[in-house]
Each structure stands twice: as C-alpha cells, then as structure tokens.
Computed example of a mutant assay.
Amino acid sequence: MSSTQIALDEQCTRQGWMTLLAKAPLTELERHWAEIVHPKFQWIRRPEYGAAMLQGAVGRTGAAFNLGEATVTRCTVQIETGEIGIAYVLGRNKRHAALAALFDALVQRDQVKGTSTITPIIAALKRCVREAEGAVRCETQQSKVDFFMLGREVTGE
C-alpha cells in the first residue's frame, strides 16, 4: 500500500478531508489546483461570508456556553459529473472556500470512479497541515510555564 493510499485511508471520511481542506493554506490549494485539469462546474452557492457561534465548555465536561462568534466563508459547487462540493472556511477568504468546495467534489468523484487523481494532493495537504500544527505546538511548548507548589518547612520551634 502506497503512502498516498494510507494518507487517504486515514482521511477517508468526508468530514476528515473537508477539515483538511479548510485548514490547508490557500497557497498550497492554489499550487495543487494549478497542477490538475479543472472540471467544469456550476455555483450552487457562491462564496459568501457569515457568522458561526462558537461554544465552549470548561474542561470539556462542563455545561456548554456561548463563547462568541467567528466569521466563516461558505461555498457550494456542483461539478460536471454531478458531485456536490461544500466548504466552510474560518475567516473571510472566498477563493479558499471555492477551491475547498471544488476539491471536496473531486475527492467524491474519485471515490465513485475508483480513481486516485486527488489522493496525492490530499496526502500532500495533510503533510503540510501536520507540519504547520507541529510548528505551532513547538512554539507553544517553548513558552510553557510549569507551576509547582513549594511546601513550607515545618520546624519544631
């Protein structure tokens, strides 16, 4: 089994590759988009901005509470073979949302046809996202402060 096949197997759920496409840098999506044959498509929903409510929970176990709102860009396309691609991207980037939706539809097409034209792209994007997340983790780890308690010495006086 090739490394690209393993990478897609780990991201075989639609939720997995949609998350990956949303997190991938736009420059990487653009680079890969330039390397493939562009499918004909029609807009179902052109890229548009909106807001999503973010919820949090203390320690992930407490009651959920509204943390605030975040701007998201969403897009829906249908490629010529009938697959519908959807994307929700954090922030205001219409191009990112459009490319993510197109790649979503192309991955679905690959699964239906049993081809792997987009598999290497997904694998490359996964490596890129992992490296970026690793860099953030490393930077965060460098600024980590460990707190500890010093006990008072008890003297017999």
Rank of each mutant, 00 (worst) to 15 (best):
Phe65Gly: 03
Arg31Leu: 11
Pro120Phe: 05
Leu150Gly: 14
Ile121Gln: 06
Thr117Leu: 14
Lys113Trp: 10
Arg74Val: 10
Asp104Arg: 00
Val154Gln: 09
Lys23Leu: 05
Ser143Lys: 13
Arg60Glu: 04
Val145Lys: 12
Glu69Tyr: 12
Arg14Glu: 02
Met53Thr: 09
Val136Pro: 05
Arg92Glu: 15
Gly82Trp: 03
Arg109Phe: 01
Tyr88Glu: 06
Lys23Val: 03
Ala97Thr: 08
Ile84Asn: 02
Phe147Gln: 13
Ala64Lys: 12
Glu48His: 08
Thr71Phe: 07
Met18Pro: 00
Ala101Leu: 02
His38Glu: 15
Gln141Gly: 05
Leu150Met: 15
Arg45Asp: 02
Glu139Leu: 13
Arg14Gly: 00
Gly62Gln: 02
Ile121Thr: 09
Ile44Lys: 08
Ile86Asn: 01
Thr140Asn: 07
Arg45Ser: 02
Arg130Leu: 15
Ala64Val: 12
Tyr88Val: 09
Val89Ile: 06
Ala34Val: 12
Ala124Gly: 05
Gln55Ser: 14
Phe41Trp: 11
Glu30Val: 06
Arg130Asn: 15
Val112Ile: 15
Arg137Leu: 11
Cys138Pro: 06
Gly16Cys: 01
Lys94Asp: 11
Ala70Asp: 13
His32Thr: 06
Val37Arg: 13
Ala132Leu: 08
Arg127Asp: 12
Gln55His: 15
Ile44Trp: 03
Arg137Cys: 10
Lys126His: 10
Ala98Tyr: 00
Trp17Ser: 00
Gly85Trp: 01
Gln55Ile: 15
Glu157Tyr: 13
Arg31Lys: 14
Ala57Ser: 14
Gln141Lys: 04
Asn93Arg: 03
Leu102Val: 09
Lys94Glu: 11
Ile84Pro: 01
Thr73Ile: 04
Gln141Thr: 03
Glu35Trp: 11
Thr19Asn: 05
Ala70His: 13
His96Lys: 06
Gln142Met: 04
Thr76Phe: 04
Gln42Leu: 12
Gly16Thr: 01
Phe41Lys: 00
Leu21Asp: 00
Arg14Ser: 00
Gly134Tyr: 05
Arg127Ile: 13
Glu30Gly: 01
Arg109Met: 04
